[in-house]
Nucleic acid binder design. Structure first.
Lengths: 346, 346
DNA sequence: CCCGTCGTTGAGAGCGCTCCCGAAACGTTC
DNA sequence: GAACGTTTCGGGAGCGCTCTCAACGACGGG
């Protein structure tokens, strides 16, 4: 490991070199308003020569800002690693934070009762805000988060109507409706649905969308699953046994659909001739590699991440100016549209 | 967004409440050595009552420690999201850091020339150390990192012999040897190899391992690829066209192997009867879902992450005690063993 | 009985920065 | 030309913490 470099220069050192006061250097470093041009130049040069970098610790000690936000991923392992969902979202978040010179502190919960640790960290005031992925109805985390501006990824599912929580989600219900309508448009009548894990609002919303179109659907056409490939396979087998006459399947996400496709092939059903299949998410590595390529409902996951970060940062900015900028400053939730991507499977 | 909570208590406040000095409270908060038991108790209670949490900024200002390490992922998008490699490694790192009360600051590079930003951040002394994934031979990042203890994920590939860099890697070469030997043991003679991206040491090492066993291999049996599913498909087609008599394939990783399997099926070759296939990594979501299930070389990715963090933290501890603990304190690189996991494909 | 020693506590300096405020320099206006 | 803004800059306090050092008893040995 490389050795620690020599002593880092301080504001004081820069001031001395530029022949000005600490205060002036500080002003220049923070934008340079109210400092005359020649001085600005002199200070800039001194900063350059000494390779000065502000000490963030000293800075946050007085400003009480940290230029850092926490990203909390409180999912059980399964989903996090089964599909690149979070990776994409992180990418979006990272881009937005970088653009605002903020750092990303990643908190992964380890096991069931690790929430307290995360809550304590957030309460400790080490970050300016938090982006929380907590899509499960029974998740205790939201209740534990106090005193930290928070934006949720996906509509949180607590019972008392998401009491003013800010979240970013995609139009799960609308997207599901569009998918099922498309199947109807193809002349399919026995359209099955493999649900996601119903302790997540996304799964519930997609099911609702399905029901919106299939108002008098045969309940036997609905099989509960869990967003996993194995779950998709299981559900597909179940459905085929129960309703051999089904002619279409709307799966709650792509990897579930991929599992369904495997079972359909195994059972000798042709896709899309015998059974049309539609997924959800449009995870490219999945949808483009299935056989046949998967028709699906696209949501722009990276964009959701970016938007979450933007909402949070905006809320943070709002609390700086003026005394009590009021609730007008708090941003509200956003629901992003989805689009149907037609490939070969439906 | 929830409102910021009220003013946080300071050391001073705790001291006042416990009727002791700031120094004593500090001692108790940091372990309590050299403070008599009754006082410790009184302070502990005051801390509890006020809900005191140390201000990390103030603390690092004087200690120059941050209890945070940066994780730098400088991969182009493709690989990061194609397989859950980094997600698993992050999990391992996170576990180890959590156990040492350190935070994880995630830095994703955005695009080609974002290295400077990362280098600047690391040089800024905001973190105690860095874990860097930079597996490409031409990556400028390692050269830019100065003055921050760093552990690399995967053997860095710079030309001048990894000048003392500390890294954690798996035994790519040995694992490849074992895989190819296994194929030989199955009686296969025309064993092809689909390489990974050869600007990464892991790909080079696996190729070397293949060559170790196939000392006089027909060069036509080696096809260069890039670790991607699409690349695997392309390479497999190429190989089948060039060497129709091949009876086995060792692919540089699992998703490449999955691509190869698709092409083999498409071309009517039975696996493993006509062509045996082995992958590398043992990414469960991939290997267990291919048809047939994939024989592969397992590396414990999460463990690699954990080990990287442990190495870094150990190096950090070493620099605290005594004046000049010397180079004996610097940890050295680790190469983890691999194991062959037999499934149906070979 | 005095003095050195040890263990325990508190006072105070200072980490590097921001920001308030007052001084200085420079117009502007009547 | 005096009185009064208006910038522009520096002085200095202080953010919350750690850590050195001195003070202070208690205690045992000479």
């Amino acid at each position: 490991m490389t050795e620690q470099s020599t002593e880092r220069p301080t504001l004081e050192a820069v001031a001395a070199r530029a022949g000005v006061s600490r205060a002036t250097v500080s002003r220049v470093v923070n934008g340079g308003d109210g400092v005359r041009e020649p001085l600005v130049e002199r200070v800039r040069q001194a900063v350059e020569e000494l390779g000065y970098v502000p000490n963030q610790a000293a800075r946050s000690l007085v400003t009480r800002r940290h230029d850092a936000v926490a990203v909390v991923i409180a999912e059980p392992e399964t989903r996090v690693f089964a599909d690149p969902f979070f990776a994409l979202q992180l990418r979006g978040i990272s881009k937005e934070l970088t653009a605002h010179d903020s750092q990303l502190v990643l908190l992964l919960t380890e096991g069931r009762d690790d929430h307290a640790r995360v809550a304590r960290y957030l309460a400790g005031g080490h970050v300016d805000g938090a982006l929380v992925f907590s899509l499960h109805l029974d998740d205790p985390l939201p209740g534990l988060i106090r005193g930290v501006p928070t934006v949720y990824g996906g509509r949180p599912g607590w019972s008392d109507g998401s009491r003013g929580a800010v979240y970013v989600d995609c139009d799960n219900r609308g997207g599901a409706r569009e998918a099922v309508r498309h199947l109807v448009g193809l002349g399919r009548r026995r359209i099955a649905h493999i649900t996601g894990a119903l302790d997540q609002t996304s799964a519930v919303d997609r099911l609702d969308g399905y029901r919106d179109v299939m108002v008098d659907a045969d309940p036997k056409l609905i099989e509960e699953s869990d967003f996993s490939p194995a779950g998709g396979e299981r559900a597909m087998r179940e459905l085929l046994d129960r309703c051999p006459d089904l002619d279409a399947v709307f799966a709650a996400n792509d990897i579930t659909a991929a599992g369904a496709l495997r079972v359909l092939r195994e059972r000798g059903r042709r896709v899309p001739e015998d059974v049309a299949v539609i997924g959800f998410d449009d995870m490219l590595p999945v949808t483009e590699r299935t056989d046949p390529p998967l028709t699906t409902v696209r949501q722009d996951i990276e964009d959701m991440g970016r938007l979450m970060a933007r909402l949070l940062l905006r809320g943070l900015d709002r609390r700086t100016p003026g005394p009590e900028s009021g609730p007008a400053g708090t941003p509200s939730s956003v629901v992003l549209p989805t689009t149907l991507v037609r490939r070969a499977s439906a």
